[in-house]
Amino acid sequence: MNACTKASDARERTPAGERPMTVSVVIPAHNEEATIRETVASCLAQTYPLEQVIVVADNCTDSTVECARAAGAIVIEGKGGSKAAAQNMALPLVTSALVVALDGDATLSADAVALMVDTIDAGAVGTCPAALPGDTDTTYSRYRTLYHAISNGWVRKLQDVLGRQMVLSGMANCHRMDVLRQCGGFPEDNITEDFNLTWMLHRRGHRVAFTEGAFVYTREPTSLRELLSQVHRWTSGFAQSMVKHRAPLHDASSFVVVATQVVDGVVGGLATFSFVPFIARHGVKALWRWWSVLWVVVSAASLGVAVRQVGWRTALKCLPSWFVLQTLIGPLTAWWLVREWVLGKHLLSWTGRHGLKADITPMTARRKLLLFGCAAAAGVAALVNRRTRR
């Protein structure tokens, strides 16, 4: 029995009045033979009936195609070259009112689609579930567990209050097909289609929202290199999308959301980076002076939010990994943002997909001249100030 037959049987068992919208799932997959069966199975196990489950086998050299078909999905093969391109290959086949985009190494909670449909039915054109790693067995999954728990517990909720979700996460998201088609599908002119599409929707005046209670369970990086490569792409894609859509200038809510994201990514990382040297020099008794009382309170509140999400045992288990990796990633995030926004050197591709190496554009001659002028002006101003003080 294939996915369409199973979905049809499920719809027949569901009264028409309880089926406000039809839903399809699109899964871009590049060499996902190890996970694709479980991903498809989580779709077919949804409490809300699905119209289609489509797997796009993108440049696959393993048995992803056979595994996906055996699991009950419709499979198309192609060479999209990017995640967004692979997703767009499936859109002409989608016959439903809504489409869920799901990573080929992720799984959905059984009621995720039903809850996301409720969010769309309430007036949003796009939504995404909460994300959590599928395990806490590695340093990297423990780091991400706290990272996502804090985001799910209050960051996304506050963004909903402001009406400006920073991103409908590409791990899993749901969109109205009519609006997505109006946008030309998933945008391919950026290395992070999720940031790009989310702010395209904001600019067009559409409402998007977070679906609390629905979950996507992710497979996390298994090496430091893979983790840094992923965060590098996310950071650069965020930076490029903010410039493309002039996101901070859209309205006051957008400015608050973007500014807090930058502060959290840059200042938060630098704060943890300075923790050990500060304690070594001043001692534990001076902790209240470390990045001011406010920062300590924010850190404690964040840990409290994480405890509410995953429990105190898991939160404490994950805390050391989070602290160590945040200490490393924070300064790198600051550098990547400087490189994108100040130096004008943009990440175009990244290690990890289709065997590509990181491709970064060179700094333009105009940008070099501008930075040289700024540096020269700052040097002259400093020299004048020094002489004036004398």
Rank of each mutant, 00 (worst) to 15 (best):
A300V: 13
G265S: 08
V310S: 01
K285S: 12
K244G: 11
W288F: 14
V263Q: 09
V298K: 07
H250Q: 12
R339G: 03
G268R: 03
L303T: 10
A252M: 13
S253E: 12
P320N: 00
V296Y: 07
P248C: 02
V267H: 09
K244Y: 08
R308A: 04
D264V: 14
T327G: 10
S299K: 11
A334M: 05
K244R: 14
A247P: 12
V293F: 11
A286T: 11
R339W: 02
A315G: 01
F273G: 03
P331Q: 04
L270A: 09
V256H: 14
R289I: 06
L249G: 07
P331N: 02
R308G: 03
V284L: 14
I329H: 01
G304P: 00
A300D: 02
F275R: 04
V324Q: 04
A286R: 13
L303S: 07
T333G: 08
R339K: 14
D264S: 15
T327N: 01
V338C: 06
S253T: 10
S254Q: 07
W322H: 06
G311M: 05
A252Q: 09
V267L: 11
A252W: 11
L249W: 14
W335P: 11
P277D: 01
R339C: 02
L319H: 02
V262T: 13
V256M: 11
Q261H: 15
H245E: 10
L316K: 01
V324P: 01
F273C: 06
F323W: 12
V296H: 15
G283I: 08
A286D: 09
V338L: 13
K244T: 12
L337P: 09
A271P: 09
T260S: 15
A315K: 02
R246Y: 10
V307A: 00
V258L: 09
L325K: 08
H250M: 15
A247D: 12
K244F: 07
W288H: 14
L294I: 15
R339E: 11
L332Y: 06
H282N: 05
S302R: 09
S292K: 07
H250R: 11
W312Q: 01
V256D: 12
S302Q: 05
V284I: 15
L316C: 05
V276S: 06
D251L: 11
V338D: 12
H245F: 13
D251V: 12
M242E: 13
Q326T: 06
L287N: 05
F273E: 09
G304F: 00
T314R: 06
V307N: 02
P277A: 00
L337F: 02
T314A: 05
R339P: 03
A259P: 10
V262L: 15
V284Q: 02
W312V: 15
V297Q: 12
S321P: 05
G304M: 00
S302Y: 09
G268C: 06
V258A: 08
W295M: 15
A259S: 15
A300R: 08
S254C: 12
I329W: 03
T272R: 05
V243C: 13
C318R: 00
G330Y: 10
I279E: 02
H250W: 08
F278A: 06
L270Q: 06
G330F: 04
P248R: 03
K317S: 09
F255R: 13
R313D: 05
F323L: 13
R281K: 13
L316W: 05
A247S: 14
Q309V: 03
Q326G: 07
W295P: 10
D264A: 14
G330D: 04
